[in-house]
Design a protein around this nucleic acid. Sequence first.
DNA 1: TTGTAGGCGTTATCAG
DNA 2: CTGATAACGCCTACAA
Lengths: 379, 379
Amino acid sequence: MAGKSAHLITGIRRINNRYLKVLGYRKKGLKRMMKVTIKEVAKLAGVSIATVSHVANNSRFVSDQAKSAVLSAMEQLDYQPNAVAKSLRQKTTKTIGLIISDISNPFFTNLVRGVEDVANKKGFNLILCNTDEQSQKEKTYLDVLSQKQVDGIIVAPTNDNGVLFHDLVHKKFPLVFVDRYLEDMAIPAVISDSEDAAYLAVKHLIQLGHTRIGLANSLPSIQTTNDRIKGYRRALTEFGIPYDPKLVHQGDSKVDGGYKGGNKLLQLANPPTAIFATNNLTTIGVMKALQHAGVQCPEQMAVVGFDDFEWASAFRPNLTTVAQPVYDLGKIAAQMLVNLLLKKGKVPVPEITKLKCSLIVRESCGSALPRPLRANTNN
Amino acid sequence: MAGKSAHLITGIRRINNRYLKVLGYRKKGLKRMMKVTIKEVAKLAGVSIATVSHVANNSRFVSDQAKSAVLSAMEQLDYQPNAVAKSLRQKTTKTIGLIISDISNPFFTNLVRGVEDVANKKGFNLILCNTDEQSQKEKTYLDVLSQKQVDGIIVAPTNDNGVLFHDLVHKKFPLVFVDRYLEDMAIPAVISDSEDAAYLAVKHLIQLGHTRIGLANSLPSIQTTNDRIKGYRRALTEFGIPYDPKLVHQGDSKVDGGYKGGNKLLQLANPPTAIFATNNLTTIGVMKALQHAGVQCPEQMAVVGFDDFEWASAFRPNLTTVAQPVYDLGKIAAQMLVNLLLKKGKVPVPEITKLKCSLIVRESCGSALPRPLRANTNN
DNA sequence: TTGTAGGCGTTATCAG
DNA sequence: CTGATAACGCCTACAA
């Protein structure tokens, strides 16, 4: 029996060695240092691996003696628990996915920060994914994240993966929409009140005396874009101003779209005296169009932009904007997801949460009504 | 023997059931759908799990018949391989960590995008971490990332974790510095040539006729800050202009620091005729200071800013800037790391790679020398 | 051409 | 109070 046992052991050793050779960092030049495992800590401390695990997580009582032996062994060996193994066992990765369209858009930048701050505070890490509005990339990321077993996903969805999201909710996969949402889906969403934002901006312009107000809008067919048109029209209606579809330009949520929109509005036979741009990049495009056409703001054209910028008050014209609570958007979405994952508080009903935007008045609207432009203004 | 075998099997079942009850999603309300594993696919397809694995990764020849059986089983069950299990086995997570100081700083925004783009293309995901320049947070993140077994880390290091980084290189942990670096460390770094950038900016101003040039600098003691001072002085020396320490302000790489720096420079008995701001946020601060003091740019004060902005040409004054190749910084750092991980190409020698900045001339320097301010300009 | 089974590093049950 | 050990899901050496 002793012989058999010995045989077994060497058998195992042999196998172990094989594995070591194969897995344990191949090519000479680049061999990584072997990470120390719970087993080695246990051996050094003279206790079982169970005990080591329990002091690491203090998940059950361990005698002071054993505990200090373990702790000093950990110290000596510079032990770091392997989170991957833990994840496999516990079926939770303490990681959440964040899918947005483009981190280099300042809007998402602050949103991401909001998410990261609460995630970090609650012990979660963030895998960042940029879709560039391509639903194919979104699909791929959704797949990868799911394979990587992230605990949940926060996403600013594109339009075309409805079925995919539907499948995910069906599998009870924890999901939160942010900035946008898809209709008829049992997924909580945190968005800003675009309709109200547009209403605020347009009302402000009307109260300054404007009656012809251009709308440089974002990507058509996106939820938020439609809401902004609604708010625009509501303000007009409220003040008895007729709606002129010529004054509305559908852009692409980028600088270029804003530039084109600005140009188009300037070239109307009866151009507006004010423009409301419904997206941060669109706003920049509009300002460029004005500059190239030599139209002074606010003297010849009032402008209200979207999303506040750090620098809005450092350059001329200081821009009047409707500011979305961008950081909070991310923060609240993350809180929802994390609460859901931690089952703390009540599980959020899958409903949409709207945050209010605020109007920040600066000089770009002027105080008086600009004198109307004629069509030939683009000197 | 048959009896014994049967006993064994029921024993395993019992245990299985126990585990299922314990691990397989406790609380009634929120039970997640059990994920399907390779085992179930194998059973449905009538092959061994080895075969399933091999068709999933096509890692060995499988007969057409078996292959199609497996594929259809996967389809039917909507099988998704568990990347965590795979990672545990293969000791690679296809994930890299990115540690920066603050994603909401537009500088890092584009850098992150560069990293994400190449990582994504090469099949890696990104875990994003913000340190806010706190070395304690950096330390924690380094720890967590290492426990999560990321394959490598790209980091814009703070100053105070030298030993930690040293330990990591010693363990052969794949690391790349970006934007900054720590001295005497065998870690490759991708940075922009700050010394040259400052030289370019200052030389430009000198060539416009300026001899008193203010420097609104960033955080003291950071590598890049010192380099910028060097470039500043080199340009002065080259044109025989004396160095006046009063013209140099050390800020904090934030808006506030720039604002204070701008004010300080304006209030000098003999104020500069031009200011070079060495950081994007600092630049905004300087512009705010000028605006509050009622100093016209470029008529009364020329300004060269740092980092180009999307909107730099949409507002007045259109800002002349020294643009860092921010996106490329991230892109190249990521390429280095990925090549190292994939062992493709030659492993990069741990040396620092400097990318050139470029001067983008716009109106904020004017074309003629401004008339000198007197100390009482801040009307 | 395919199957068997050990092992990756943990956690947690059960049995002392 | 502590230890032994199955299992998490997958990959792959070896055997057939």
